[in-house]
Nucleic acid binder design. Structure first.
Lengths: 356, 356
DNA sequence: AATTAGCACTCTAGATGATAGAGTGCTAAT
DNA sequence: ATTAGCACTCTATCATCTAGAGTGCTAATT
């Protein structure tokens, strides 16, 4: 008989229970554990161990005569210590990579596409949080005159996001004036975080000596209107309806709450922005979330960055009973992929002759 | 005794049943009808009439011993002939109007806001469909050089939508060249529908005599990349979770289907684009929809336009058992509001004469 | 001929109880 | 330390029952 220390065996059994429960969704009993894993011990022994695991808080009972179900603590231990990371299949990787090929350049479409794919491949809800204006820097600022009293401002950020805003002006500005203003702004705009524009840009402009009072007043106007946006990052979210397909969410009331949170997005944004600070792929299990409505869910999330700066987050939301190993691999992969996309050198370009 | 002709009385009773059912959600019995409306007839008489209405297809029975419930045909008749339109309360109108004040200019935020408000005020799901590129005309086209090999194209449409796209180029273009190209394009861009740009712009450019071959090749590139978007209109949609709060949607299976449709948006877009052709506020009840998954829903939808051209649609999706009179008023009001917003005078808009 | 009272009938929703099965926890034996 | 054995608990399911709601029909009334 194999000599397994008690601790080791406890872990083994915990692992079996969780693994099993994740796949079947049904509470796991002592008999099942032995059957499926040909352990050479009796049910009674297993029951003893289960009782201990329960006392220690890794498992529970829905009721006296049912099998065991993992607690949050159980899942946590599983994710941290027991689970072995999975790899995506070659096929999956190719499929993803191929989808990315076509999405060159525009960051917003990359993000939208990513959330869609996360959702599709996980069968849960996928999301991507855009860089928050606090960390994303301004790269370009373009002004376009729409008609006499309206100007379109287009912001391009370091990360590659593009935002626009229509502004109203009182004084007429002719094209060449606009060009000058534009040039002036762009000279002073580089490296300011999108959030700080209002405060920073004036400081910088004071360094320049600007003759025309008109320019200053216009710019003031612009800055006021265009950058009064203290938005958080935006959230791309796809596959919300997948939540409904989860047998775990049979309770109407709970599902409704989950949906309310997802629908509003705002709460989710806050939750995630906090996570952005931590590098790497994280799992939030059940009650670990600060958001009461999501206590029946787990969130697997990671960050992406350009260079050394963490910009945003991405991930999936699903039931606590999820295939963590797979999901972590998935989120991880996408995180790396976005990183790669973002740090792609901007000048490369080659044409392939064999066009379809 | 009041002299009501039979036909008239039938309608009255149908009206009572529907009205009642809409508010209570419970099948309506003969006693209830008399109680709540102090009709001076006996339950037996009412039962006779109900039987007739059922034979004619306006009502049904869930089962032998329950009250009556409207059929789709019943609702249809109610909406077309029986219902009296409601007005929004002053308070509601003010609340809406106030929200709109702050949203000047940018059409996308107006639309997003509108779908949110539709959802909030109806407690159902609100949506707004942006003008489809087939009907929306190009107004301005701005090119911004991002770095050596990428150009940002910003499209402004007649309706006020703003789209952008990043394009890759092979040859380097310096700023002044870009300005020329930009000017050239803008001169030839006015009044082309966003869908037709690819085809049309070249036709127009041939009228001009362009010397530089380089320009042409670049423009070709631009047109290829930037306008290969044969998208339909985009859909802003809010309050999906409200569906879950409807007691009518207790059947999990059905809700899931509804959500799938809503989640995908695409199907909904197609459904709505079709409706765009019909001016005015329309109601789609239950099985009248071409979309099987929405047979348990009703859709109240209207269009909005700028000048004489219908651009897009907006509305709400809810259960068949909805307060039609209120919802129609609501959707109608928003439709008018968007119209007003869109036709707000812009000061510098020359109209082309007699363009079909 | 339209209305109505009266009544039998049907169906639902909710309560009750009975039963089989799953799985535990404990005790005493190995 | 492990295990066999057994009593116990809880669920899920199915059948049965009952009250209540509401109908549909028939025969009487106006």
């Amino acid at each position: 008989m194999s000599k397994i220390s008690l601790e080791e065996r406890k872990q083994k059994i915990l692992q079996i229970v969780i693994h099993h429960y994740i796949r079947s969704g049904k509470p796991v009993g002592s008999e099942t554990i032995i059957e499926k894993n040909k352990l050479e011990v009796s049910p009674a022994t297993v029951r003893n161990i289960l009782a201990v695991l329960e006392k220690e808080g890794y498992l529970t009972h829905p009721h006296t005569s049912s099998g065991r179900v993992p607690t949050d603590k159980g899942y946590r231990f599983y994710v941290d210590s027991l689970m072995q990371l999975q790899q995506l299949t070659q096929e999956e990787e190719q499929r993803i990579e191929k989808e990315y090929e076509s999405q060159r350049g525009a960051l917003d479409s990359v993000m939208q596409e990513t959330s869609k794919m996360l959702s599709m491949l996980s069968h849960y809800t996928g999301f991507v949080l855009t860089p928050s204006p606090a960390v994303d820097h301004l790269k370009r600022l373009e002004l376009v005159k729409l008609d006499r009293d309206r100007i379109l401002a287009v912001l391009v950020t370091d990360a590659g996001l593009i935002r626009h805003k229509i502004m109203e002006i009182e004084q007429d500005v002719n094209s060449s004036e606009l060009v000058s203003i534009n040039r002036l702004l762009n000279k002073n705009v580089y490296g300011i975080s999108v959030n700080d524009i209002g405060a920073e840009i004036f400081k910088r402009l004071q360094q320049e000596k600007i003759k025309q009072v008109k320019y200053i007043s216009i710019m003031e106007k612009l800055v006021q209107q265009a950058f009064a946006l203290d938005e958080e990052g935006e959230l791309y979210l796809e596959g919300a309806s997948n939540i409904l397909s989860q047998p775990d969410f049979a309770d109407y009331e709970k599902v409704r709450n989950i949906f309310k949170v997802i629908d509003e997005k705002k709460m989710l944004c806050e939750l995630l922005e906090e996570k952005v600070s931590h590098e790497g792929t994280k799992v939030i299990i059940g009650e670990e979330t600060p958001c009461k409505e999501l206590q029946e869910c787990s969130i697997v999330t990671s960050t992406y960055r350009a260079g050394d700066k963490t910009l945003g987050a991405l991930g999936i939301i699903g039931p606590k009973r999820m295939e963590y190993s797979k999901m972590i691999a998935l989120v991880d992969y996408f995180s790396k992929l976005i990183n790669k996309t973002l740090s792609r050198p901007t000048k490369e370009l080659k044409r392939e002759p064999g066009k379809k």
